[in-house]
Simulated scan of single mutants.
Amino acid sequence: MSTIIRRRKNKIDRLKNDAGVWVDEAEDIKYLAMNYFIDLFSPAHVPTSRSATPNLFPCIDPGQLASLVTTVDLEEIKVSLFSIGGIKAPGRDGFPACFYRS
């Protein structure tokens, strides 16, 4: 019963086109959806200049950039690792900090 309800809930029975008319034939729904996404990803919708995208990140001045590319000391790594809680912050591999400490 739950499968039938989920199928009914997830099924698209009709869509409204640009003229405000409801479309309920399967082929017309397919055509309407395809045209919507073709239009959405057409070159007319792609921003042409860099100023069209929001400035999400602040600029880094050369002094700050130089400090980001310096070599990392092994003592600095050890201090950072031991400052993390034992089972906190697992990395991408899933191992927590206590694994690397031992």
Rank of each mutant, 00 (worst) to 15 (best):
Y100N: 07
R7E: 05
F37T: 12
C59Y: 12
G20T: 02
D93H: 12
S51H: 06
V23L: 04
A19S: 14
R8T: 03
A44P: 11
S102H: 15
A97F: 09
G63K: 15
E75F: 11
K11S: 11
C98P: 01
I12M: 10
I38T: 13
Y31N: 09
D73F: 10
D93N: 08
Q64H: 15
L32K: 00
G91P: 07
R92V: 03
R8E: 04
T71Y: 08
N10D: 09
A52S: 05
E75D: 04
I84L: 13
A33R: 10
P47W: 01
K30F: 00
I4C: 11
W22K: 00
F57M: 07
R7P: 02
R6E: 01
T48E: 13
P43V: 10
D28K: 06
I5V: 14
F95S: 03
K88Q: 09
Y100D: 04
N35I: 05
L15Y: 01
R8L: 15
I12D: 01
N10S: 13
Y31R: 14
K88S: 14
E25K: 07
D18V: 13
G86P: 12
I12T: 01
R14K: 11
Y100C: 10
E75Y: 10
R92G: 05
P47V: 01
D39I: 09
K9W: 14
V72P: 04
L81Q: 02
D73P: 11
K16D: 02
I38R: 15
I5D: 08
S67Y: 15
D73M: 11
D13C: 11
F99I: 07
R8V: 10
G85K: 03
R7Y: 12
P90A: 14
D93G: 02
I4F: 15
I60K: 15
I29N: 00
V72T: 09
N55V: 09
Y100L: 11
D13F: 07
W22G: 01
F82V: 10
G20C: 02
D24W: 00
E27G: 14
F82Y: 06
S49H: 08
S80W: 14
G91M: 08
T3V: 11
P54H: 01
N17Y: 01
S42M: 06
V79F: 15
A19V: 12
I38C: 05
I29L: 03
F95Y: 05
R50H: 03
I87P: 08
K16Y: 04
T53P: 01
E76W: 12
K11Q: 05
L74Q: 14
Y36K: 13
G63F: 14
T48V: 05
V69S: 13
C98D: 06
L65S: 10
F99S: 06
I38H: 13
S67I: 12
V46C: 13
I29A: 00
I4K: 15
R14F: 03
K30C: 00
T71D: 09
C98W: 10
D93K: 14
A52E: 00
H45Q: 09
I5R: 12
T48L: 12
I60C: 13
N55E: 03
C59L: 11
T3D: 06
A52Q: 05
G63Y: 11
I84N: 06
D13S: 07
S51M: 07
K9V: 15
P62G: 11
R8I: 09
V21H: 11
E27D: 15
S102I: 10
D18E: 14
A89N: 13
V46D: 03
E76R: 06
D93Q: 08
A97E: 01
I5Q: 15
G85Q: 02
S83P: 04
